[in-house]
Amino acid sequence: MYDRTIRRRRLTLAALVACSLLLLTVYFGESNDGALHNVQRGVFSVFAPIQEGASTVLKPARDLFGWFGDTIDAKGRLSELEGSNQQLRARAIAGSEALRVNAQLQSLLNLDNAGGLAAAKPVTARVIGRSPTVWYSTVTINQGSDSGIKNGNPVINGDGLVGQVSTVSGNASIVTLLSDGELAVPARVSASGAQGVAETGAGGPDDLRLKFIARRYRVDPGAAVVTAGTLSTAPGLESLYPPGIPIGAVTRVVDPGTDAQKIYLRTYADLQRLEIVQVLTAPINGNRR
């Protein structure tokens, strides 16, 4: 009985293995129109509706487990996207940085062309340091005497006059800004031609005063003020600043038309946000008009 059972088991097992190998061989040997393929297609066509029904019935369970899977996948995807987002943000920042610098350089170029400043041998420099005081009275730029910069050279950016070079080393310079109390710039009101001196007022670093304007000149808020250039015809008294560089716009006038009139102006250049500047290293015709 026992031997017979063992024998039967072995025979059955051998028959199953042989059957599998035979099916495998036949299936591989025959064409797509063969008998086994046809049987398979038949079984598949019977099985397909059951499968479809089961798929519909099991959809809630599938969705439930799929939700877990999706959640885990979403977490992985989230960290992946966060990394990608950081990269893109860095690139976007670099791009906007480049755009801003490009705009500044373009406006500098426009100012050079419009003001005829190309002949003043402008040296373009980047602001690499800033005085830590709230007045922002000096900045450090990355060009110095090696590039031809000298003490007293005027410094501009795309909006207008910024200040003048006060200290020079080989590869860097310090620029004293218009907002510094030590600096005074010969200026004129563009519309009327009234001449005076622009220097820091008591109100704040951005609040310049235009002094010494004769009372016969009426100055209105909004009037543009530019550098006056050299006024004297005597040699040795040339202005450091070429004429016609925009300085700022008149914001208000106190006691207009009197000797005591006070004219306030705001610089065109944002002195608190300087990045790219140009140093005008050579006077043009003694900075005369």
Binding site: C19, Y27, F44
Partner: peptide
Amino acid sequence: AIFGFAIGMLLDFALVETVGVASL
């Protein structure tokens, strides 16, 4: 073994795969 053979066969037919592989 018989159950394994049968379920393998059904799987191969249902998935239209090479008959005999799963059953073996």
